[in-house]
Design a binder for these strands. Structure first.
Lengths: 243, 243
DNA sequence: GAGTGGTCTAGACCACCAA
DNA sequence: TGGTGGTCTAGACCACTCA
């Protein structure tokens, strides 16, 4: 029970939502786990099942939890088939399903410049891990990716580890470090290919490319990854749904 | 009341949702109107207030209805400040607010080719209205727009009418024809500027542009507008939220 | 104060799943 | 068969708006 007459009143179900989120951050339930049933949670927090239900509904709507009738409520994960590429909006113009492959072309640790430090909300000069890679779709190189993450939460990460995970960064973050990305923001522009990228993607200098700058956020809306993808879009496009 | 043992069982609130949508399509409640209160609707459909509430919640989540505590539930509209440019994802890199202006550079009626007819789900050869225009942001030309809509639902539309509405197409569709767009899909690619566009946007031939192909849908997910925007993105970007 | 949407509860029953 | 989430109801009370 909660004091309803408090000056900074918040609906009960929102408070429950915060408590659930804290259990997720704290690692009580990890990606892929089943969380306790609605009735159990109602008992734990001393509220009705309907209130817990509303909190879970909200988290399920944000793709943080997944409900499965008859089985239980699960912590969402990037590991399952079908959800693996949840943040990838690039699809073939033909609609064909494609085979993705990742080839690592660079790995280093650097000090964060002011720009990236600001975006990732860390101190300028903190250590970043930066990865460059080439993504091929059905054998054709299409994306030149540049990824930066703070080194601190990813202790022990190295180039070989990424290779082992076959370039599936989000799976690796979850499985090995318990860091789950819940949402991302992307900024798209059209640019002309630089020499470095033109060579990697087998293009002419100055060819138009789709530039996708992405910032990914983990629980509590904390930014955890910066990414710049330069994409060839002659037979692919970026899909965006407006609602 | 509804037969729950029917073979093709659907939750009551979904059936209510369909009934509400039909009233929207039929024009019983037009954009900007207040719909009856939850209690009234519960009485009309012979269900509990909670069931109506769930149906309305769902429609509100799709931005089709808007709830205002203490006042009532409204049919969403593109006419209000703040919602006017709901589908415009292009923002200044600086984050500055901008003044938009539209200059019409072309207006004609044509027969639909197979491609557009397929997209708009009309017969090839049907009459389309096609508009070309130049959008300027704070005085600078940034988007070269090409718009196509079926002529049939927009009887009496002409170039002057568009000018009167100052290029705000979605407002005009609603206000003058009762056609409200509820969602859209966009496909983005990077292309090189053609001669026509380069001249309009004061660019060099071959400069990289963001190409945005949009299909907009009205109630019942019926496609009603095709649009191709070619955008200069040297100091603007397209924002996309991934969840 | 009357009317609206917003929250919360308690309880019944249904649909789905696994053992 | 028992446990889970999903639907539906009825009723109480709160917060907001406006006359």
């Amino acid at each position: 029970m909660v004091d309803i007459s408090s000056p900074n009143y918040r609906p009960l179900y929102e408070q429950i939502k915060v408590l659930l989120t804290q259990s997720l951050i704290g690692g009580e339930w990890r990606p892929g786990d089943v969380i306790p049933s609605e009735i159990d949670l109602a008992g734990r927090y001393k509220v009705s099942q309907g209130t817990v239900r509303k909190a879970i509904d909200s988290l399920a709507g944000e793709n943080i939890l997944i409900r499965r009738q008859g089985k239980g409520t699960y912590v969402a994960t990037h590991n399952e088939e079908g959800v693996k590429l949840r943040f990838l909006r690039l699809t073939a113009a033909s609609g064909q399903k494609e085979v993705l492959n990742s080839e690592q072309v660079g790995y280093k640790k650097v000090k964060a410049d002011a720009h990236k430090a600001g975006i990732l909300q860390i101190k300028a000069g903190s250590i970043l891990i930066e990865v460059k890679r080439l993504l091929t779709f059905s054998g054709r190189p299409l994306i030149y990716d540049h990824i930066a993450i703070p080194a601190a939460p990813f202790k022990g990460l190295n180039a070989a580890r990424i290779e082992e995970n076959n370039g599936s960064m989000y799976s690796m973050y979850e499985t090995e470090y318990g860091v789950r990305m819940i949402r991302a923001e992307e900024r798209l522009t059209a640019i002309a290919a630089s020499a470095e990228v033109a060579e990697a993607l087998h293009l002419e200098l100055g060819a138009p490319l789709l530039s996708i700058e992405r910032v990914s956020y983990t629980y509590g809306d904390k930014p955890m990854e910066w990414r710049l993808g330069l994409c060839l879009t002659d037979d692919h496009h970026y899909m965006s749904e407006l609602e």
